[in-house]
Computed example of a mutant assay.
Amino acid sequence: MRSVCLSSLPLERHSIGIGETTWEIMAVQNQVVLADRLDEFEQFPFGLMLWESAVALAKWIAAHAALVENSRVLELGAGAGLPGLVACKVGARVFQTDHLAEALRLAQANAERNHTKGITRFLADWKEWRCEERFNHVIGADILYDRHFHAELEAIFRCSLAPDGLVVLADPGRDATLEMMVYLERRGWRIDWETCEVGAIRPEEGDLRRSVEVNIWKVKR
């Protein structure tokens, strides 16, 4: 399947304020447009859109800059790349991964737009994980929606996380995520969580809600 050119996608600019920094993130706003071009992708390219969970995770990173600073951070399902950009800004050595080449190119373009350098990016298949390095933090936004990948993700956490490391995951309260947390606890992981409210990126017409509550899950060995 041929690669999709980013310039052919209807990218729109999002201005996201996090701390004292305003990030300019390009992403597809209209999900219907991507659905109309689904034959160009192996699966639906959710990573080409910006999601509230990514904003919440980025805010958590900025609020815990002292914890993330000088650490090695692995971002799973990087998509448009916002959390990894914030981690890089606070002084982390960041590695962004995604299964979609177009998403990694979008993350790189967003890094360039925000004058952020030094992030390593590579394609990664969760079912055939090949990275043998260890990281102080493994982060991900909206990566737990598919139950079929839960066992593979737990295996990645186990092999990629440093002994005293922390997994930080953001999710808007999906049932599949709760199932994943139960699964992790049964596998011996310790779970903690908090909530973060962020502005809705794509509020539906007539919906009075202008914010979304996102859960931040913290997972340790």
Results as ranks from 00 to 15, higher is better:
residue 4 V to R: 09
residue 6 L to D: 01
residue 10 P to T: 12
residue 10 P to A: 11
residue 10 P to E: 14
residue 10 P to S: 07
residue 10 P to I: 09
residue 12 E to P: 05
residue 17 G to W: 02
residue 19 G to Y: 00
residue 21 T to Q: 02
residue 22 T to S: 00
residue 22 T to G: 00
residue 23 W to C: 00
residue 25 I to P: 10
residue 28 V to I: 09
residue 29 Q to S: 15
residue 32 V to E: 14
residue 33 V to I: 15
residue 36 D to P: 01
residue 38 L to V: 08
residue 44 F to H: 06
residue 44 F to M: 03
residue 47 G to W: 05
residue 47 G to S: 06
residue 48 L to S: 11
residue 54 A to V: 12
residue 56 A to W: 02
residue 60 W to I: 11
residue 60 W to T: 10
residue 63 A to K: 08
residue 63 A to N: 12
residue 67 L to Q: 15
residue 67 L to I: 11
residue 69 E to F: 08
residue 70 N to I: 04
residue 71 S to W: 07
residue 71 S to C: 14
residue 72 R to P: 00
residue 72 R to E: 01
residue 75 E to A: 07
residue 77 G to D: 01
residue 78 A to S: 13
residue 79 G to W: 02
residue 83 P to R: 07
residue 85 L to G: 09
residue 91 G to A: 15
residue 91 G to I: 15
residue 91 G to L: 13
residue 95 F to Q: 10
residue 98 D to E: 07
residue 99 H to C: 06
residue 100 L to N: 14
residue 100 L to S: 09
residue 102 E to W: 00
residue 103 A to C: 14
residue 103 A to I: 08
residue 104 L to P: 03
residue 111 A to V: 02
residue 112 E to I: 11
residue 115 H to R: 12
residue 115 H to T: 05
residue 119 I to H: 05
residue 120 T to N: 12
residue 121 R to E: 14
residue 124 A to Q: 11
residue 126 W to F: 04
residue 127 K to L: 05
residue 127 K to Q: 07
residue 128 E to V: 13
residue 131 C to Q: 08
residue 137 H to M: 11
residue 138 V to D: 03
residue 144 L to R: 01
residue 144 L to V: 10
residue 145 Y to A: 15
residue 152 E to D: 14
residue 153 L to V: 07
residue 154 E to V: 01
residue 154 E to C: 08
residue 158 R to I: 08
residue 158 R to Y: 08
residue 160 S to Q: 08
residue 160 S to M: 02
residue 163 P to C: 02
residue 164 D to I: 05
residue 167 V to H: 04
residue 168 V to M: 08
residue 170 A to D: 04
residue 174 R to S: 04
residue 176 A to L: 01
residue 177 T to F: 00
residue 177 T to E: 04
residue 179 E to K: 05
residue 179 E to V: 13
residue 180 M to D: 03
residue 183 Y to C: 13
residue 186 R to Y: 06
residue 186 R to G: 14
residue 187 R to T: 08
residue 187 R to Q: 15
residue 188 G to E: 10
residue 188 G to H: 02
residue 191 I to T: 09
residue 191 I to Q: 00
residue 191 I to D: 04
residue 192 D to E: 10
residue 195 T to R: 13
residue 198 V to R: 11
residue 199 G to C: 13
residue 201 I to R: 06
residue 202 R to H: 14
residue 203 P to A: 14
residue 207 D to W: 00
residue 210 R to Y: 09
residue 214 V to F: 00
residue 215 N to I: 07
residue 215 N to R: 09
residue 219 V to A: 12
residue 221 R to M: 14
